[in-house]
Design a binder for these strands. Structure first.
Lengths: 190, 190, 190, 190
DNA sequence: GATGAATGAGGCTTCATTCAT
DNA sequence: GATGAATGAAGCCTCATTCAT
């Protein structure tokens, strides 16, 4: 029996990629990622066929991670605004707790090296959240529009909020609350 | 592209860079940009010391271009919401009329190759707009926060709106209007 | 390919190497050969110290195989031309029956990774055949030259003949016969 | 005006490739070829898009070179055997005068990296020679077969002859003559 | 001033080989 | 003994930048 492929190494590479890409962009070299992971240059390619596959898997990983952060503890039975606030808070917390993940995710979201197929798979599993979004839309001002739009609006407003939070950490909580209220005003029924 | 008149080479390079980067990302080679500009590979470096300078100048150029689009015809005396709507509309129009500029701007905005100094210079000159933003803040729900935050909120909401417009061109105008109302609800006094 | 019985691994590797090299050239990776043999990547190196040794052993194996095909049933007592024809036919049959062996042999014959020592060992054991060659030389037009030359002439003429046969299968037998007559005319007494 | 692309450099690369491939096979690295040519690694790719293109151009070059050697001074009006002998001699001389060209040509002829299209282009321009081959076929023993076959036969017999000449330089001329007689006996009318 | 030929550093990827299991 | 995970050297190729013309 050969040495088993340690799941650790795969994770180490993905984590190293997150950090390295966060600070150097998608142009970060595979060599630098491997080095950051404490792994030989060639080893990276045992786990990922090529750089594009690494990028796609990283997207999937981060999306999963984000989904977990947002889904766990979701108060499915609570009032609409409470649920919305949970979505907002859990997303912002995820982003602020791991700025590298957030930055890297931002780059991947914009890159055309992430396949459409992977993107769509990434949408799955946000069930409670999607349902909530749908309700916000249905009962809100934007009822004529696809929930996707509201969802994206939330993400981009949260992004802006996080940037402000990162910039002025002392006012972080104020931004977080204000950002949510802005979103809620934008989307919910008058 | 034909060989541009001598004095226009700089402009030709910037324009070619806009197009080329829009479709190939910031990794677009200087050679490909020069070629698209109808200019020799080496000539590019007579106008820009290196690629980073080109990128920074391009940022400045696009920001100027955007400023011009948003500033000209600005109804400085109109009611607040009218002015806000003008800001929104002119920004969205700028982005939808020249998708290459918008895409390239998006890449530059996120890249750390654009110096902070240049970014800040780019803020200048949006006078009427800044004043309007200030008023929106002062008179609105977000009065405790810096106008910069509201400004960024507008930009990111408009960005999301433009993405939706580009995705479903038939509903474009509906998105544009809905996006603005969302922003206005988010920022203005109840 | 299923996992071969333990004792057969060596053979499985050699056979897999024949097939793989025939279609991918000597650059075929050891990993691909191992895989084709249904054997672990590392196992290959338990049977062959390194790739060069594999190549040399493969040369030896194919040469042995070819010798067997040409030697068995050799009509040692028949007339000279009959024996010559048997040499020709058995060589051509060997090559046409197993194109992979022929192609791989062609690559190995030309490669400098096969040691001169191995090449020479490969000559041995063609006893009846060598004797026949000697007679062709002695009694023929080329009597002043070493039998090795005539032997090589036969091989290369047969090679050319096989290429033509492979190219136009319908005329295969015509080529086979014509090729031999050409050789016989070239080498035998007027 | 930029520095003109010196035809010399292209030639230097092709020549270096000839030498390097002759001794290291088609696996010779582009770096080693560039170095042998006294040229930067990257420069090679200004003259040839990739290694395959280099190989194809090299094939063309060598074929042209060979054609020139065989065509110039061709005694178009002479007797058939005289013309055949000229073909034989000029081909053998070409091969013996430049063993590197011969070895490299041999590798290229066998490689599937040389495109069929290039191969066919290479056939062109051997007019006097093709005509002569046709006559040898028409008037000879192999009249039922395509001239291509006789042509290939000549080449392979000459190849074998050259190998012998190279092996025993002192008997070189004897081999050259004997080889031709063998060919003539094989192909011409009794 | 304009050009594009020249280049080496660096990027991605493959591969023969080693060795822990 | 068998395996395949691990690896770094080496291969092909790209590219920003320099500089001869």
């Amino acid at each position: 029996m050969a040495r088993p492929k340690t799941g650790d190494k795969r994770s180490a590479i993905l984590q190293a990629a997150t950090v390295t890409i966060a600070s150097n962009g998608l142009g970060a070299s595979t060599a630098s990622i491997a080095k950051a992971a404490g792994v030989g240059e060639g080893s990276l390619f045992r786990y990922f066929a090529d750089k594009d596959e690494l990028l796609n898997e990283l997207y999937r990983e981060l999306k999963n991670n984000m989904r977990h952060a947002m889904t766990s503890g979701f108060p499915a039975e609570a009032a609409l605004k409470v649920r919305a606030r949970h979505i907002w808070d859990s997303y912002v917390s995820w982003g602020m707790d791991s700025p590298d993940k957030r930055k890297t995710m931002a780059q991947l979201s914009v890159s055309d090296r992430v396949l459409e197929r992977i993107r769509q798979e990434g949408q799955a599993g946000f069930d409670g959240i999607s349902a909530t979004m749908q309700q916000i839309v249905d009962r809100g001002k934007l009822c004529a529009l696809p929930p996707r739009f509201v969802n994206d609006l939330l993400l981009s407003m949260a992004e802006t909020t996080m940037a402000a939070m990162a910039n002025e950490p002392r006012k972080a909580e104020r931004y977080r609350a204000a950002g949510f209220e802005a979103f809620w005003s934008a989307a919910a029924k008058k």
